[in-house]
Computed example of a mutant assay.
Amino acid sequence: MMYNNLLVEIKNRILYITINRAAKLNALNKDTLAELSAVIKDFITNAKAGVAIITGDGPKAFVAGADISEFANFTVAEGQQLATDGHTNVFDLIENSPKPIIAAINGFALGGGLELAMACHIRIASENAKLGLPEVTLGLIPGYGGTQRLTQLVGKAKALEMILTADMVRAEDAKSIGLVNEVTPEYALITKCEELAEKMLSRAPLALTSALKAVNAFYSKDKNGYIVEIEEFGKLFGTDDFKEGTQAFIEKRKANFTGR
């Protein structure tokens, strides 16, 4: 499938998704969100890719926010529908992906851009990255999960400070508060993400899926994370990968997982 706002490529079972709107600092407009939804849905079912990396084109921005011009004149109902569609079709879809998705944060990750990064399972930032939720400067609040995911990641006090002041944090500060996993030089950003992706690809795919499901259950109000963990743990005993993994351990060799 051809995309107008994304560059999409699969190499060595890694799906590379680059938001290709550098002239607009990779802002998320309606069409870009629709394309992201389509590519993530394909990734979930595509056996050729086991891990995805999302980044932005150019050195300035991962995603500098949403395309404000598209919703400046929205009504209350239209604003609520905008947020609902974003949650359902993109951000929740990413968070609940059964395969790992890594955000490679190059430059600004603001507003919807930070919300996109927070929906990913792991965040790696370049040294020049700046992260923030500036929505209150527009008379809004984050609408794509930012109030919830930022609080989960950094705690209530820091989340409120960032949201209420609209201040940006630099990459190293983002790491210190748990907003990003690692900080790398700009030139090493994708390489670091690839290292993590390759390590995950060497693990049992069904176990990765179960781990993602169990961890996400902790944040679901209608699920008991302990019960989900027990169920997922038990199910894995019926997989070929469990048999292969345990046999490889006993035989002191590298496991050859097949995702069955």
Rank of each mutant, 00 (worst) to 15 (best):
M2K: 15
N5S: 14
N5A: 12
L7W: 09
V8I: 15
N12G: 08
R13Y: 03
I19V: 15
N20H: 15
N20A: 15
A23K: 15
L25C: 11
N29R: 13
A34H: 09
I40M: 13
D42P: 03
F43D: 05
G50M: 02
A52I: 11
T55W: 09
D57P: 01
P59T: 10
A64D: 12
A72R: 06
V76H: 02
V76N: 03
G79T: 08
T84R: 12
T88W: 07
N89E: 14
V90R: 08
I101L: 05
A104P: 11
F108N: 02
G111R: 00
E115P: 11
L116K: 05
H121S: 03
I122K: 08
I122R: 05
R123L: 15
S126W: 14
N128E: 15
A129Q: 09
T137Q: 05
G139I: 15
G143S: 10
Q152T: 07
Q152H: 13
K158H: 08
A159K: 02
M162C: 03
I163G: 03
I163T: 03
L164Q: 00
R170Q: 05
R170Y: 05
A174F: 04
N181M: 01
Y187F: 02
L189G: 02
L189D: 01
I190D: 07
T191Q: 12
C193T: 10
C193W: 04
L196H: 08
A197Q: 01
E198C: 05
K199W: 06
K199F: 02
K199E: 05
M200C: 10
M200P: 06
S202M: 09
R203A: 09
L208W: 02
T209D: 12
A211D: 07
Y219H: 14
K223W: 07
G225V: 10
G225K: 08
G225Y: 14
Y226C: 04
E229R: 09
I230T: 09
E231N: 06
T239L: 05
F249V: 13
E251I: 06
K252Q: 14
R253S: 11
